[in-house]
Amino acid sequence: MTHNKSSLATPAELHTFVGAALRAADLPAGDAEAIASLMVQADMQGSDGHGVIRLSQYVKRIEAGGINRVPKIRMVSDRPAMAVIDGDNGMGHLVVTAATKLAIEKARETGVAWVGTRNSNHAGPASLYARMAVEQKMIALYFAVGNANHMPPWGGTDLLLSTNPIAVAIPTKDEVDVVLDMASTATAYGKVKAKAKRGELMPEGWMMDRSGRPLVDPTKSDEGFLLPIGGHKGYGLALVIGILAGTLNGAAMGKQVVDFNKDSSTRTNTGQSIVVLDVNAFADLEDFTRAIDTLIGDLRNSAKLPGVDRIWMPGEQSAIKRERFRAGGIPISNGVLRDLDLLADQLSIGRLKTFSTATTGVL
């Protein structure tokens, strides 16, 4: 057991810092604020592999020309229940937000809408965008192609697939909304990066080296690959998600995927897809959400294995973290804080203000 200290930052301070850094990298102020809000939301829900830990990488790509500071996001295909958006190599947060808002608008008219993106970039955790729809009492499904290939096809060793995540959000009446957010690999690569920054080992089952042995040192992740969830089933899931979010939209997939961890200047042509369903087109919203609440109660109150205190629903623990971090501060690991301090000095902005420390026990 090792104990690693983390600094704490209020959501407001973190938002201020991220926004200042992006403005210093010459992003328009409004875009910087919108991206900062989504990045802070990622950290607040515990998605620390996709939040402020990515800031230095984003700035590096922006300054290297790998991301367009002032994109002209536009539709390249438009029908009543679908669209394809070209992100003009802008920040993924902006591109996917535009796609999600359009899908919500179209779903109000058609009952269901599918909007895909091309020429986008890394956009943070999938659940951010699924939750935008569920906040409108709609159902959302989100697919994305990851920004680096970390997984081979089942039985192979060539890295031809990414973590390719999926998120599904379903509204409730009084319960916490059901929000599933998962990679098609045993873990998201961002969690590997977060482990490295905290000086922690990975559990067996996350990665394997090219000889088939478990890989637990996150600093040696280049020596192996991520494992799919459920063996060959996870491989199949990663493949079809990549086709739906990448190939279908004219975005990168397979050998075309650019590893943005190692290449800061090449366009990634990242693809994402968001599907939004208006519950009212299928059922009475009140009846549906009440039925979901009943189902949740049945699951939560079902018989438990010895030693299990609570059965959790997807999204519940993230909701609890949002409230806890809003009140007590967002943990920022010392490794990430060092990177942010270096970035602040590089950009000639004030360093992130932290107000306390917390100790976390890590196996």
Rank of each mutant, 00 (worst) to 15 (best):
T2D: 04
S6A: 06
S6W: 00
L8M: 12
T10A: 05
F17D: 04
V18K: 00
D26V: 14
D26T: 13
L38T: 08
Q41G: 05
M44L: 11
Q45P: 03
S47E: 00
D48V: 08
G49R: 07
G51A: 07
Y58Q: 07
A64C: 12
N68I: 06
V70A: 14
V84L: 07
D86F: 01
A99T: 06
T100S: 06
R108P: 03
V112G: 00
V115N: 14
P125Y: 13
A126V: 12
M138H: 12
I139G: 01
S162G: 15
D174L: 14
D174M: 11
D177M: 11
V178P: 02
V179I: 15
K193R: 12
L201R: 01
L201P: 02
M202P: 00
M207W: 03
T219N: 13
S221W: 04
E223M: 12
G224Y: 01
Y235H: 08
M253H: 11
T266I: 11
T270Y: 01
D284Y: 11
D293T: 14
I296G: 09
N301T: 13
P306Q: 09
R310V: 15
Q317C: 06
K321E: 01
R326F: 02
P331F: 00
S333Q: 03
R338V: 05
D339G: 08
G350L: 00
R351V: 08
